[in-house]
Simulated scan of single mutants.
Amino acid sequence: MTWRVIARSEAGTSHIKRSLPCDDDCLIAQYRLPCGDELLAVVVADGAGSAEHGGEGAQVAIAAVAAALQSRLGESEITLDASLAEILVAAAHDGIASRATNDNLQPRDFACTLLGVLAAPKLGTMAFQIGDGGIVLDVGNGLELAVVPMAGEYANMTHFVTQENFREVLAVRTFDSLATKIAAFTDGLQRIALDLATDTPHEPFFRLFFEKLEEDSLEDEEVLLDKLSLALGRFLQGPQVNERTDDDKTLAIAVWLGGVKSTTASDESGNLDARA
């Protein structure tokens, strides 16, 4: 086991009050490469609140990205670059367009944002993003924001993978180094997870999550990850989050453990729920 990953999507209070589901979706997957390394994929989509079927669009986008990545891995060795990002995003765009045609609707009815990270030891790291939300990485220089969240032409607007010019608004950033810490999240967490004045991560928000994932544990790995995932869900539905946002929120957290001795967190309380 070289990657340890947890992710949760939780409905915002505005959706809960109206008995609506969460419109976010998320992919976390690990793939064994021919060289023996493990490739981690973390991809997050957020259905637009202005789109009647935004949540379905997010689900279609995530499924399309997963299928396209699996297909690409089956063809040959891959390179984590802009061309691969465009293949994945185009798959999401085309998948939603096909779904819209089948339902006699327009792609904008399924509008969603899309962002993700791919990382492997010998390949480095690639982050891609259309829309708001955020990707925070540590590639050896401490936590940094991979891509500045995108704003649209007007206030409270952003870009979506359903746009005809999705290739033009796609942002891609590559790193030669492996990201040993990764967080990806939808815009419901932006004001909590980022310092928007400086476009930098709010490190206290992420520190405990990374520490808990890095801890040595005598528990079965599956049991441990289940417990951490449930704790993450409670945190996302807790007052420290819901008092600051009523939006849906997704948070995926990953740490690289391969070849690195796990560290024990300095906080021994074990309380993931207690901090924002």
Rank of each mutant, 00 (worst) to 15 (best):
S19N: 08
P201Q: 03
E168Q: 14
E203Q: 11
L33V: 00
Y31W: 13
R99C: 15
E164S: 09
E243T: 14
E214M: 14
A63C: 08
L73N: 08
V42N: 02
G131V: 02
L80C: 08
R173L: 04
H53D: 04
D267I: 07
T158Q: 01
V44M: 01
A171I: 14
A111N: 08
D81N: 15
F209M: 02
L225A: 01
G133P: 06
L178A: 10
A179F: 10
F210V: 03
L27F: 01
S83M: 12
E52A: 07
A197G: 09
S266K: 11
S14Q: 12
D46V: 07
R234F: 12
W3T: 00
A64H: 06
V260I: 15
G152R: 03
D94P: 01
R191L: 10
V241P: 07
R275M: 08
C35D: 15
F210N: 04
D103K: 12
A11L: 03
G74A: 08
T200P: 05
L218K: 15
V169Y: 04
K212R: 12
L105C: 13
L105F: 03
D187R: 07
N242I: 15
F110G: 00
E75A: 10
R207T: 09
K249W: 02
L123W: 02
F210C: 06
